Amino acid sequence: MFKRLREDIATIRERDPAARSAWEVLTCYPGLHALVLHRFAHACWLAKRRWLARYVSQLARFLTGIEIHPGA
């Protein structure tokens, strides 16, 4: 899990010239937050925990403004 998060942060820092540090990306980038929460929601979806998956998805949408269906 942490390896994938580090890879995501590194990718954002490579592609976004405005990203000055890993801490800034981790704390201030809603796209990263949405992606991390989507991965959790998707794991819940695959484990047949559909309500929890939808709840996490809606929470992520509320917090980030980005909606990703947990089945995607």
Rank of each mutant, 00 (worst) to 15 (best):
I68T: 11
H69T: 09
L35K: 02
H38V: 02
H69V: 04
H38K: 06
W23R: 14
C28A: 08
R13D: 10
A72Q: 09
W51N: 08
W51C: 05
R15M: 15
A43Y: 03
E24Q: 15
W45G: 02
D16C: 11
A47G: 08
H38C: 03
C44P: 00
G65L: 09
I9A: 09
L59E: 08
L59I: 01
T11F: 13
E14M: 12
A47W: 05
R6H: 14
I68M: 13
H69Y: 08
H69R: 13
R54T: 01
G71C: 09
A43S: 14
R54Q: 06
A22F: 11
T64H: 02
E7M: 12
I66M: 02
T11H: 14
C44E: 03
S57G: 07
A10M: 11
H33D: 08
I66K: 05
K48G: 06
M1Q: 09
W23C: 06
W51G: 00
I68S: 07
V36A: 10
R54S: 04
R50G: 02
H38T: 05
R6N: 12
A18I: 08
I12R: 10
R39S: 04
F2M: 12
A41P: 01
L59D: 00
G71P: 01
L59R: 03
R50W: 10
A72W: 03
H38L: 04
E67L: 00
A10N: 14
E67W: 01
H42I: 04
F2L: 11
E14V: 12
D16S: 11
S57M: 03
H38Y: 11
L35Q: 03
F40P: 00
Q58P: 00
I12H: 06
A60F: 02
R39V: 01
H33M: 10
V25D: 07
E14K: 14
R61I: 00
L59Y: 02
T64Y: 05
H69N: 09
R15Y: 11
A43Q: 04
W51L: 09
V56F: 01
A53P: 01
L52G: 02
I9T: 12
Q58I: 01
I66P: 00
G65C: 10
R50N: 09
V25K: 04
A19Q: 13
T11V: 09
I9L: 15
Q58W: 02
D8V: 06
A22W: 08
E7L: 14
A22M: 13
K3A: 13
G71V: 07
P17F: 13
P70S: 10
C28Q: 14
A18D: 14
R13M: 15
E7Y: 12
A18F: 13
E67M: 00
T27Q: 11
D8W: 08
L26F: 15
V36N: 07
T64Q: 02
S21E: 11
P70L: 02
A22P: 06
T11K: 15
R39Q: 05
I66R: 04
E7H: 13
E24G: 12
